[in-house]
Design a protein around this nucleic acid. Sequence first.
DNA 1: TACAAAGTTGTATTGATTACAATATAATAA
DNA 2: TTATTATATTGTAATCAATACAACTTTGTA
Lengths: 140, 140
Amino acid sequence: MKFTSDDFAKELKSKNIRLSHQRLKVLEYLSENKCHPTVDQIYTSLHKEIPTLSKTTVYSTLSALADAGMVKSINIEDNEIRYDITVEDHGHFKCESCGAIFDFPADMSRLESEVLSGFKIRDKNVYFKGTCPMCLANKN
Amino acid sequence: MKFTSDDFAKELKSKNIRLSHQRLKVLEYLSENKCHPTVDQIYTSLHKEIPTLSKTTVYSTLSALADAGMVKSINIEDNEIRYDITVEDHGHFKCESCGAIFDFPADMSRLESEVLSGFKIRDKNVYFKGTCPMCLANKN
DNA sequence: TACAAAGTTGTATTGATTACAATATAATAA
DNA sequence: TTATTATATTGTAATCAATACAACTTTGTA
């Protein structure tokens, strides 16, 4: 699905988030780079286009977009947060050899347990780790 | 299930991990505190018994035990790692109001997807977030 | 066009985690 | 038991993602 700046602008307005050049650029970047980038990757790339961009802005923008449900933070690594513009439920697999993160369909409703009746669930994450087929092949 | 120091000593030996006072104490602490403690909580508590204990030791011990599969690290929070002596597959629910982490049964084999055929899966994590029944009740 | 509220910037800080060298301990063999 | 060697522990210093904050800028609205 391809989004235009205009689509993002409308969505921001509908969520009562002010429109800003920086926010549009972050959304645009995430929609064109679905590799689950880190804050630093997003900042470094956008900084080329927007020399005045501050890393603090990238942090606060992503935080605001995540609060509004427009992006999802991925904590598959202990040391840095990654972001995903795909907010629909799905699992993430991290290859511990090459570092790549893969999406896979994951029906999280199947994980519902009677133990959680009475709990209000706001967010669900499924993180798998291991080795991807390419890295498995390269070992041989 | 109740473990004795002797059980832990045998398990360490079978995994070719050297026996040390500190390692036994960390295992003992985790088996008595299944609340998914942070490194700092483990350190602070054990430091009272073992005044010479270093935080670096707690980090390296937990890292070694996790590598050996004797404990599991929980990255449900972005800012600090928690540890669990229950290594069998199960989900974790974090209450965003009181901070408590709850275990729940999660049949992760149901998440297997044909997309992951060809991947070697080493580790599976299911993290849910929201509000626990007690905190929901307190709001009213 | 003017104003108030909110966003952006840059710098300084925080705080969990790691690196590393010196010291101490555990496992093994004589 | 004792000696030896490899590994663990300790304490300090460093790293680095993330946050706090104050000054400045921009946005949305009247």
